[in-house]
């Protein structure tokens, strides 16, 4: 098992190398560069060339790439072109905010999604089943920015229960209660679509398992219904669900960009959008590497979960 984990971690290296080449090329080959965007409408050729030289953009691409990778390998992700800050601490701070948001959404979507799916499967075609599947359909269909604004209007503006945006109140000392208040609306917004997905998938996966012989056996030997459903049916239905939840992490990290924009959540997504528009190469490249590595690691965790869920699966 540990040999398998080690092998997967070693494979991270070529994957990251590929990601670094692609993101570097995409950013550097796109029209417009940081000098042009920074100077905006006032740009003179002289200024553009001077700033390009300052930033080392006048060198051949392979040289620029080599320098960047060499520095990254040594832990130096460079300095943001627009913000003038060192890249690594900046993206890590923002990434923490994104992880808090993503994790909260994941918890919401998993708990509500699995619960709703199981209940719907146990009582198919009941009013609960129909209602929850209708909500699921709505959840998938509502665009994040629209839902976010509707929630702001209801819960911040009309009811005054929750703040409209941001991660902390202005001037407040940072505490968990304040963070939680600010977290509710964006987390729910971000979770909406994935709750729906998890609920529908759980329902169909459960329906399939519930009809299996061994569930009938479990019931026949006198197990309580709750045990039969949760221990025997749900555990066997979990493999596709865990796969999808794992994929959801990627979706949520990506979907967080819109949610972060709507709620001014100071996460990596919002930073990346601004960095892409400003052609802030070091930030975009560092951010994509970080997201890429996270995605690979989450996939590894999902694969390891399979072993726990299905003893027939072995990695060697």
């Amino acid at each position: 098992m540990s040999a398998y984990i080690l092998r997967r971690l070693v494979l991270l290296v070529p994957v990251m190398f590929g990601v670094s080449v692609v993101v570097f090329l995409v950013m550097h080959l796109a029209p417009g560069d940081p000098a042009v965007v920074m100077l905006g409408p006032t740009a003179s050729e002289e200024d553009v060339q001077r700033i390009r030289t300052d930033l080392g953009l006048d060198q051949p691409l392979p040289v620029q790439y080599g320098k960047w990778v060499w520095n990254v390998v040594q832990g130096d992700f460079g300095r943001s072109i627009t913000m003038k800050r060192p890249v690594l601490p900046e993206i890590l701070t923002r990434f923490k905010a994104t992880l808090i948001l993503t994790f909260a959404s994941l918890v919401i979507s998993t708990i509500i999604g699995v619960a709703a799916g199981v209940i719907a499967a146990v009582k198919p075609y009941s009013w609960f089943d129909r209602a929850s599947m209708l909500f699921a359909l709505l959840g998938v269909s509502m665009p994040v920015f629209w839902l976010g604004i509707v929630l702001i209007v209801i819960f911040a503006l009309k009811l005054g229960w929750l703040p409209a945006g941001g991660m902390y109140s202005a001037g407040s000392t940072r505490n968990a209660g304040d963070l939680l208040q600010h977290l509710v609306l964006p987390a729910v917004t971000l979770a909406a679509a994935s709750v729906a997905l998890v609920a529908r998938l759980t329902r169909s996966s459960m329906l399939e398992v519930i009809r299996q012989d061994y569930i009938r056996t479990a019931r026949a030997k006198g197990l309580r219904e709750r045990t039969a459903i949760l221990r025997h049916a749900l555990k066997n239905a979990l493999i596709p669900i865990v796969t999808v939840i794992g994929l959801q992490v990627g979706y949520l990290l990506g979907g967080a960009i819109l949610t972060e924009t709507v709620f001014s959540w100071p996460g990596l997504g919002l930073l990346m959008v601004q960095a892409i528009l400003a052609r802030d190469f070091p930030i975009v490249q560092g951010g994509v590497l970080l997201i890429g590595a996270t995605f690979v690691l989450v996939n590894l965790i999902v694969d390891l979960c399979y072993v726990y869920l299905d003893p027939r699966i072995h990695y060697s």
Binding site: G160, G165, A170
Partner: peptide, 22 residues
């Protein structure tokens, strides 16, 4: 003191004023 807070989305910025956050 003066505190500057970013609100990228127009409607959120407006809501923040109306709720007294800014």
């Amino acid at each position: 003191a003066v505190i500057f807070r970013p609100f990228t989305e127009d409607q959120t910025r407006l809501a923040a004023l109306q709720t007294g956050e800014v």
